[in-house]
């Protein structure tokens, strides 16, 4: 019974995406218009949610394996301890940093709302804008990282900009005034954000995040990738041997490609080397890769069909 339900769910899920791709975006049937992919974004997002849940599986796996090594004090338990502690420390730091950033961004919501209102000019009212600015002054909510005096002064200055137009013609919101106000808000926010960032840079969370990311994670990633340079060189030295005609052809092609892409090739050997290299890449390498890609794509398509129709026995029960 469970197998049958699984097969039905698999089929319906696959059928939706197949029809969404195949059918026209909008079509008429029995004189009614159908927009099949109307909720496609929401359905696709639900798949992303499932992937998010799977991250928890990975975390449980790490904690189980390394936790059991630590508890039973097997060999290498100190490495497992370091891994678990650094995992929780990074999680704590990243979460704290994210919460700080979110709360900082949300503290600007009053000014952001005013800015959005201004951007809709001339379809907005000067009087209403002035009222909104008055409310902001009364609310006393200052964005994080900005001094109360400077913020209140800034809002008061904005009101002063509106004063002249309010007294002359309050029904029209001129584009020039819109640009002045937008630029002032944008400038004030950019300067405040920069100041806030400088201030944040000295907090424990930011400094720790910098050490973890810029000091450890990024250099380690770059170092791992740079190992490739050494491994490629050694692999080339170890395996490029002219043992047959095919090996000789491969070596010649490799030589032409290397010499064609380095400055010394075109400088000291021949100016046509880059052209030779391009010819080899476009006419020899690319068709071979395309052929492999065709084969893999057709195989993938056929396997997808078998999975969709649950035709495979499967590697597990």
């Amino acid at each position: 019974m469970i197998n049958f339900i699984t097969k039905v769910i698999t089929f319906i899920g696959g059928l939706y995406f197949f029809l969404e791709f195949i059918l026209p975006k909008k079509f008429s049937i029995f004189q009614s218009e159908i927009f099949f992919g109307k909720y496609h974004d929401q359905i696709s997002l639900s798949l992303v949610l499932i992937s998010c849940v799977a991250v928890g599986l990975g975390v449980i796996n790490i904690l189980t394996i390394h936790g059991s090594v630590i508890l039973s004090k097997k060999s290498g338990f100190s490495s497992s301890l370091v891994l678990i502690l650094s995992f929780f420390f990074s999680l704590f730091i990243q979460s704290a940093s994210w919460i700080n950033k979110e709360s900082h961004l949300s503290s600007w919501k009053d000014l952001d709302a005013i800015s959005t209102y201004v951007s809709k000019a001339p379809d907005t009212s000067l009087e209403k804008l002035d009222n909104n600015l008055k409310i902001v002054l009364e609310n006393n909510r200052t964005p994080e990282g900005v001094s109360k005096e400077s913020y209140l002064l800034f809002i008061s200055n904005l009101r002063k900009e509106l004063e002249f137009n309010l007294n002359t013609n309050k029904d029209i919101f001129p584009t020039s005034l819109k640009e002045i106000i937008s630029n002032k808000i944008s400038e004030f926010k950019n300067i405040s954000l920069r100041e806030h960032e400088k201030m944040l840079a000295n907090t424990f969370y930011e400094r720790s995040e910098k050490v973890i990311l810029n000091g450890l994670f990024f250099p380690l990633g770059a170092s791992m990738f740079s190992l490739l340079a050494f491994y490629i060189s050694y692999a080339a030295y170890r395996s490029f041997r002219i043992r047959s005609l095919e090996a000789a052809c491969m070596m010649l092609a490799a030589l032409l490609i290397i010499l064609g892409q380095i400055p010394q090739g075109s400088m000291y050997i021949s100016e046509s080397l880059p052209e030779f290299r391009l010819w080899i890449m476009e006419n020899l390498s690319t068709p071979a890769l395309r052929a492999i890609a065709f084969g893999s794509a057709v195989a993938g398509l056929s396997l997808s069909l078998r999975m969709w129709l649950s035709m495979d026995k499967g590697s597990f029960n």
Binding site: S233, I242, I262
Partner: peptide, 23 residues
């Protein structure tokens, strides 16, 4: 950076030749 990689690639050609001579 490109100059550095070009010298390294010349070195790779050189060591491939040495490897073949050795073999």
């Amino acid at each position: 950076v490109n100059t550095g990689t070009s010298f390294a690639q010349l070195m790779i050609i050189f060591i491939i030749i040495i490897g073949n001579i050795k073999t």
